[in-house]
Nucleic acid binder design. Sequence first.
DNA 1: AGCAATAAGATCGTATACGATTTCAAATAC
DNA 2: GTATTTGAAATCGTATACGATCTTATTGCT
Lengths: 228, 228
Amino acid sequence: MGAESKSEQAYRLIRSRIDSGQYVPGYRLVLAPIAAELKMSVVPVREAIRRLEAEQLVTFERNVGAQVALIKETEYLHTMQTLALVEGSATGLAAPDITADQIKRARAVNDRMRETLTGAFDPQHFTALNLEFHSVLFEACPNPHILDLVHRGWNRMNVLRNSSFSFVPARATESVDEHEQLLQLIERRATPLEIELAARAHRTGTLDAVLAYTEEHHHHQHHMEETA
Amino acid sequence: MGAESKSEQAYRLIRSRIDSGQYVPGYRLVLAPIAAELKMSVVPVREAIRRLEAEQLVTFERNVGAQVALIKETEYLHTMQTLALVEGSATGLAAPDITADQIKRARAVNDRMRETLTGAFDPQHFTALNLEFHSVLFEACPNPHILDLVHRGWNRMNVLRNSSFSFVPARATESVDEHEQLLQLIERRATPLEIELAARAHRTGTLDAVLAYTEEHHHHQHHMEETA
DNA sequence: AGCAATAAGATCGTATACGATTTCAAATAC
DNA sequence: GTATTTGAAATCGTATACGATCTTATTGCT
C-alpha cells in the first residue's frame, strides 16, 4: 500500500514545514497535535522528531519535548565557514571530471544570474540559481561523504533563511564575476587545490560581506526569539 | 530515578558494541532480543536504532530490519579524505589560539609516540596517542560544526578499525616527524591556511601509504562479508 | 528435478494505554 | 507582598498488543 511508512510521512511533513519557515526556530513540536493532524498515533511522529534531532534541525529535552532549533548569532558564521570548507573541497575534487558540457550548463545558469541583476533584485530567486550553478560543479565530487556534507550545509543555510543576498545585494554582482573566474579555472584544468581555494574564497567573500553588513548595522540579533 | 532514558541506554549499549567490534559490520540488529537483554520493551530499542541509522552506523530496511553498516572498500578512502579535510581545517582555525602550554603537552605526547617506535610496535596504542596528540591541536577550534565533523571522522575511523598503522608501521616514524614540523609551524604562528594544509597533508600521507600498501598487496577486499 | 504456489515463522510498524515527569498557576504560609 | 507548597494540566516515556510485511521452508505441479 503506502509506499512510505508513517514515520517517513511525518518526517517529511515536519521537515518541509521547517524548511519553508512555517515552523520557525523555537516553535514547539508537540507530539499529539501533529499526530492528530496526520491521523496517526504519536509513535511515528515521535520517531520522526528524533530523526530530525539527530540532524540537528530540532532540539530535544527529556520529558519536555522538542522545538525547532534556535539559531544563535554565530550559527550563520559557522555554517557558512563549514560550507565554504566542504563545498570548496567538493568542487576541487569534482573539477577534473567536469565536462565541457557541464561547464556550458553552469555558464548558462550564471548568465541567467547576471540577468537578474538588472531591475528589481529577487534574493530568493538569485539564491536558487546560485545553488543550481554550484550544484553542477560539486555534484560530480567522487567522495560521497563530502558531497553529503555539502548538501547538509545548503539545507542548513536554507533553514537559516539568511539568503545572504537579501542583506548584501551588492555582493551578487561580485558573485557572478567570481563564478566566471571559477569556470575558467576549471576549464584550464587548474589543480584541484587551486580550484578548491578559489571556491572557498568565493563563499568566504559572501560571508565577509554579510559580516561587514551586520557589523555596520550593529545588528545584534542575539538569539532569535521563540514564537509560539 | 534513572538519569538517562531507556532509549539512551539502548543507544549506548549498541553503540559501544559497534565501536568495540563486538557487533561486526553486517550483524543484524533484531529488536526483540536486544530489548529482552536490556529488560525493556522494543520501543526504546527501536528509537536507538533509528538514531544510529541517522548517524550512518547502521543501515535500515523497511520491514526487514537493521544491520551494522557494511563497509565498502572505498569507505576507508573517503573517510580519511574527509577527516583530512575537516581535521586540517580545525587545526588551522584553532592554531592562533593554541598556547605555549598546549604545544608543550602535544610535544610530550609526541615524545611518547616516538618512544613506542623502538621495540615491539603496538598500532592500537600508537593510534590512541595519535588521537591524543591531534586532539590538543584541534579541540580549540572555534567552529563547533567543524569540530563535530572531526569527532565523527575519528569515530568512523575507529569503527573501520583500520588502525592504519597496523598496515603500514613504517608510516609511524614519518608521522612523528611531521608532528614536530606541525608544532613548529604553529609555534612560529604560520598562517591558518598554511597550518591547515600541513595538517591535511600529514593525514593524506598516511592515507597514501595505506593505499600504496593495499595496491601492492592486491588486497581487494571488496565488501567486508557479513557475519551472522 | 525444477519451478511455482502456499503456508508458517520471524520481524517490523503502529495503535492504544497508562505511568512518570515537568510545568504552571493557585493556594497557603510567613 | 513575597516565598513556598500543592495540585492539576500538559506532555512525554514505555509497555503491550496486534496487524502488516518480509523471509523461508514446504508442498504440489509439470
